[in-house]
Design a protein around this nucleic acid. Structure first.
Ligand code: SF4
Ligand code: SF4
Lengths: 155, 155
DNA sequence: TCTATTGAGGACCATTTTAGTCCCCTATCG
DNA sequence: CGATAGGGGACTAAAATGGTCCTCAATAGA
């Protein structure tokens, strides 16, 4: 399905929630309630987001979480990367990807391009976009510039 | 990581292999050898691809697999869909998606759009593209048309 | 200073998904 | 007929995922 993990989804939801009131600090408990998710789980994702540098935290009373930078500078890639690691469709399309087949499978190169395209797409979607309530605005619109295949006939 | 399952990757590799010699039938054993993967595994993915209507099979001696339609008409989405089900980033972005949070999480709508964008992107990549040996051709190029945010300042 | 609050870190377990194997049946060709 | 393919599906092992919990550290304010 090429699906986000559930935690990643939670992360996005929580980030969006914070993004809607960027000024104030949000306690984990408060967020968990707002989003209707169990507190420990929310807490876990928050910690991950902090470690990835997307959130800043403050302990103690009056503490909580807030965005590390403006919502317009946080991308979907960032959020996904924070939870599941850098976006990459295949083993071979990220840094320490080591697939035995690189030599024989003729598709590595092209998958990497597709992967890159998706990454770019996700880079262009910011938290501000995601958090936006107003639904009907077609945030991301293709067309993707189509490909010119040299020898389509031959294949 | 937003990664393809390994089987999906295999499927792509195998499909590409077939696509390079579309005329002849390919036995599972032959393919397994060409791709350097265990036979049972390859066989499994082949069966899935048949069930999804991307390959046609013929039993008996001289049997084997061949493409059900030209490589230019088989998309990456098709292949992914055949193995892991339809492309959808979040629970809510495919048909029988039932997520309890739809009401409270303010991001469902926007994720669905992103999901759609990716699906469209993958629809535009054909097996012919993937199978192509020649590497350096930037098969898919963004730009994606960027978004106009109504009230960026306010967020 | 003391205490209540709130996050950090990490161990831990249950469940699900994924990957891979195997066996037995059916179709086709010669 | 018999040799060569694929079809279906059960089954297992291993890994990823989701979720919980407990203890420690920082901060604010009485
Ligand atoms: S594309 Fe080829 S090399 Fe890259 S991961 Fe898949 S099989 Fe390995
Ligand atoms: S986006 Fe909102 S509704 Fe869609 S799956 Fe994630 S949480 Fe559920």
């Amino acid at each position: 399905m090429l699906k986000l993990s559930r935690l990643t989804d939670y992360a996005a939801v929580v980030m969006a929630q914070i993004a809607r009131y960027p000024e104030q600090a949000h306690a984990a408990t408060e967020l968990a309630e707002a989003v209707q998710l169990p507190h420990p789980t929310v807490s876990k994702t928050l910690k991950m987001l902090v470690r990835a540098g997307l959130l800043e935290s403050r302990r103690g009373s009056l503490g909580g979480y807030r965005l590390a930078r403006p919502a317009t500078l946080i991308t979907a890639s960032d959020i996904i990367g924070a939870i599941e690691g850098p976006v990459a469709m295949t083993e071979c399309s990220h840094a320490d990807g080591d697939c035995d087949l690189v030599a024989t499978c003729g598709v590595a190169d092209n998958w990497q391009r597709v992967s890159l395209a998706i990454r770019t797409l996700l880079d262009s979607v910011t938290l501000a976009h995601l958090a936006q309530e107003s639904p009907l605005k077609l945030p991301v619109q293709l067309p993707i510039q189509s490909v010119t295949l040299a020898s389509r006939a031959e294949i």
